[in-house]
Design a protein around this nucleic acid. Sequence first.
DNA 1: TCAAAAGTGTTCGGCTTACACCCATGA
DNA 2: TCATGGGTGTAAGCCGAACACTTTTGA
Lengths: 221, 221
Amino acid sequence: MSKVGPLDTAVSLDSYECTIAVECCVFGFQENELKILLVKRGIEPFKDNWVIPGGAMGEGKTLTQSVLAVLENLTGIKQLNLEQVACYSDVERHPVKRVVSISFYALVKPENYPVIPKNYISDIKWFSINDLPQLGFDHDQLLEDALKKLRSNLRDHFVFGELLPDRFTLTELQDLYEKILDEELDRRNFRKKILQMDLLIDTNEKKAGVKGGPTLFEMKK
Amino acid sequence: MSKVGPLDTAVSLDSYECTIAVECCVFGFQENELKILLVKRGIEPFKDNWVIPGGAMGEGKTLTQSVLAVLENLTGIKQLNLEQVACYSDVERHPVKRVVSISFYALVKPENYPVIPKNYISDIKWFSINDLPQLGFDHDQLLEDALKKLRSNLRDHFVFGELLPDRFTLTELQDLYEKILDEELDRRNFRKKILQMDLLIDTNEKKAGVKGGPTLFEMKK
DNA sequence: TCAAAAGTGTTCGGCTTACACCCATGA
DNA sequence: TCATGGGTGTAAGCCGAACACTTTTGA
């Protein structure tokens, strides 16, 4: 099928070139819901479909830098934690041309909201993870894989303060975990586990406006 | 730096194109050692350096199909388990042109040996994981990441019969685990754990020529 | 018959799970 | 003052780690 045998190209790499795209599932936590930032396409193909934000890899940029550029454009966020999820290379995944996508996910704090739709994007919106539209391209799959990776990372490492304000209560953190993992956690066991990880600092202040007067914590360092 | 803003290209994808390569760390288990298959480059750049086998993504092929084509060429193996490891996109990682690599690893049974070096490869050889040459390009990094992923998968899923002959003893399996993880395991605990996973079948036959008369097992299904 | 490897069970400690009451605060 | 949510400890079960002797076989 390919014109040049793989072993030739293993070394000379003079085969055909191909567009590389990056896509990034941006997760946020608002109104006690896990949300994801989606954009609506203003042009064909998949005009008026919601998709995961992304763009082509820039000529002088690494994949990570390309994702950061996309997100800075969309949300003004300049620095965030990116995690590579997977590559997608089906020949027919883009109806017009061959595109290989590398997907990432990012976690953002709710303080940083996305701004106005620009360029070929007609709308941009946070969607609850429980109430998603059908996505264009193979983005349903990308989202599913990103969510799976997020959950797996959550179980391994624990503590995902990136999704919360700088100071938060343990109940807020637990709510976040429950929404991401989609299961209920025991309050006492959760607090024990989180605190014995020794990654949070007790600020000795209480959150006002909430019954019970919960303590505010922040991430170490 | 890039000519087109990421948001434009998010949709139109009319930016510059780039070569995509696949690289595959092929792990084998021989002479009670974890080994990896390396090839020596016959041309510049990195002429006479050992590298991880790979090649360009084929025009009509997915990444996985491209890896399989590379490996079939090298070893005659047609079917095997591939695992995506990561993408590498540093702008300078290939001295001549921009190349983005997607790395994989594969596990092969020792029955299937690689054949003759072809095309621009001047040599091909199994190396013990404990006695590796310095690799060309950024392949030291690729190998390190692949090994890390292999170990992590081993701890999660357990049972990696792909690296052994169809029928094997529990001691052989344990040796494999110890070599991959680079740590010693308790024989009784290992056997308990493996057997209670209920993935192996007792063939009721014993391996000849070994003291103690160990039982041969095979993978279920 | 002897040396080498296979095969087997039990105990202990730590981690996870389940579970209920009192306290602080806002309304 | 009352309703809501915050904060806390203990017991039981499960899993992983440590550990030694007997059986089988090849030499």
